[in-house]
Design a protein around this nucleic acid. Sequence first.
RNA 1: GGCCGCGUAGCUCAGUUGGUAGAGCAAUUGGCUUACAUCCAAUAGGUCACAGGUUCGAGUCCUGUCGCGGCUACCA
Length: 729
Amino acid sequence: MEHEFEKSYDARHYESDVYARWEQSGLFNPDNLPSRDRTPYCIIMPPPNVTGTLHLGHALGVTIQDILIRFKRMQGFKTLWLPGTDHAAIATQSKVEKLLEKEEGKRKHDLPRDEFLKRVETFAKQSHDTIVSQLRSMGASCDWSREAFTLDNTRNFAVRTAFKRMYDDGLIYRKNRVVNWDVKGQTTISDDEVVYVEREAKLYTFRYSKDFPISISTTRPETKIGDTAVAVHPDDPRYQEFVGKTYSFTFCGVPVNVTIIADKSVEKDFGTGALGVTPAHSMIDAEIAERHNLPSVQVIDERGKIMVGDERIKEKKATEARETIVTWLKDEGLLEKEETITQNVATAERTGGIIEPLPKLQWFVDVNKEFAFPHAKSDLLPQGTKTTLKKLMELAVGPNHTAIIPEHFTKIYRHWIHNLRDWCISRQIWYGHRIPVWYRGEEIYCDITPPEGEGWKQDSDTLDTWFSSGLWTCSTLGWPDKRAKDFLTYHPTDVLETGYDILFFWIARMILMTTYLTGQIPFKTVLLHGIVRDAQKQKMSKSKGNMVDPLEMIEQYGTDALRFALIFNTAPGTDSALAEDKIRGMKHFANKLWNIARFVCARNHAPRPLMYAPYGNTEADATILQTLKETVVNVTRDLEAFQLHEAAQKLYQFTWHDFADVYIEASKAQRADATQQENTDTILLYCLLTILKLLHPFMPFVTEVLYQQLPFSEKQTTLMIEQWPVVET
RNA sequence: GGCCGCGUAGCUCAGUUGGUAGAGCAAUUGGCUUACAUCCAAUAGGUCACAGGUUCGAGUCCUGUCGCGGCUACCA
């Protein structure tokens, strides 16, 4: 650690040593912190997916969290930042599937379930190690002794417990329903994992048969063999006379029975004002069918192929069958119109495959079912109050409970809750938490542990990865053991810091699970950051080739420079553009600080006792001490208000322009006067020490190295636990 | 379609209760001044998208228009 005071700051010479020393000090662990204050402060790290490496978005999140943690630690809080990683079920499994195919030409089903899972686990382990070392490079002062993984045994126990409770309360149910089926990934996905892609499509208008009295329009003629009704608006005079009648006909070789029904959801002015209802292959149609008690006929299977009809369409892919049917319609003289429209096609977020809605027996979380709120002494509701998961989610965010920063995301959150439907939680993939349900004939058994007796078979599905992520603040702190020390001390947590893009995926789910299971809202503040874009404001992506690797930036400019660049000029919840120039500029700032310290230390050799606030003799003294005071007050206030970008700006301004440009220059002349010299040097040192403290959360490495150079006789082992400056008023 | 946000210096963006427009980068000019050329001194650059309104006073509040982006819905 002892280096010569080099002429310029080269981060590469110091960072790994400094981090190792921090870790050895044990002070990332709140149990080892000095006992000046016992008020807990806790942030649970959003667990990065074990799908490879960290990107700049992670780097931003880590920086923000580390700033808050280091700030609070210096203020004397009992500070816990708990790290972890996420197994990211679908994302990780599909990554390994791709590798398997690429490297060995094998598919998932070429291997037994156990064997395949071993491959995934090996990959996950490697990713984990990479990620953890990257977090260390970023300077993350998290407590590694408490590290968690969403798929380890402790978390698995929490998941099984949560499932069991929700099952017993009837909040988890199994039902045959139309779900989002990802044909490519061969699994169901939740509504949130569906991504709509705008495409051109043909809208066909036709009649089912010559005798059928109404024309309908569709972009998917191949599903029409599964129609069981035609819906019209109840007030539409054109079709009144047909409502209630049933027609039978053969549609491209498939016998079809269609009843004319009246339903208010039909738009009179779109197309012909009549909607062919396909209950098995459209969620909306399924809802109509439920209202009218219509039968459902599945005609497309899980491979996306037609299941009925003759050789013209059976076993054909849906798109091929579409062409066949359109040709058939033309030949029969049934096609009336063909127009091009733009349409949103549903695709799967992870695999990019087309979503084929189809009926499947799956597990769901019921967000609208009433239950009696089970918790005593909760801020949310009195014990026994009738409520729903949806209502709990609404209650938890607002003026008296969790605040979202920036505030306008509160509206977005509420809007989402308003539209929320039941959450499909079962997945047909192997990597994840196995559903804790066993079957034997007609019997169903749900519990934390397997049933006694012979012949039970566990459900082969796994849970949506967000089910386990939803428990993250609890499961990392020891829940479901309600007497777990960490849970009692640190839950609810203080801040949840993450990107706004997972507000619904994750934050909403954590609120759902945690309020239901514990009666506590998992965090007091949700702090959102935006997307880090490139210098041209383009989203970074591998395909565009504009990815910036945080490690490369660290290697070139130093971690402190990267951290400072990431938050400088970046308001919460706002996307930011990160040019390399900006990082370079911040490297210059780190170097400026370095040279300030060289100058000050050169004038303060002799060891001194701990620093007290000096008095100013001259006007320059008075000005810098006053400005310093203001900076301390403002930076502290900005950090308390999560305005990190403002705090950073003020520190940059003070350090470089007020202190270096003005006061240090003035001090050169001032020192010439022997009576002023001692006091001037004291002020220089005092300002520097204060700057190092204020800047430490932002630039932990360079400030630590410089702190170790200061000529004090009684120093803390590390700047990390120096006391945050306070201005007496 | 609904909701949310944005439009401020060449570029990227700050601007916290309404009170004489800011930063970083880039640019121009001049400086190797012994802490730093990864630097210093100075300069230039904006009718804060547009139009109204409230106010003694509006980048900031209200209404409308135009342009851009995001989320959400799924008109079949």
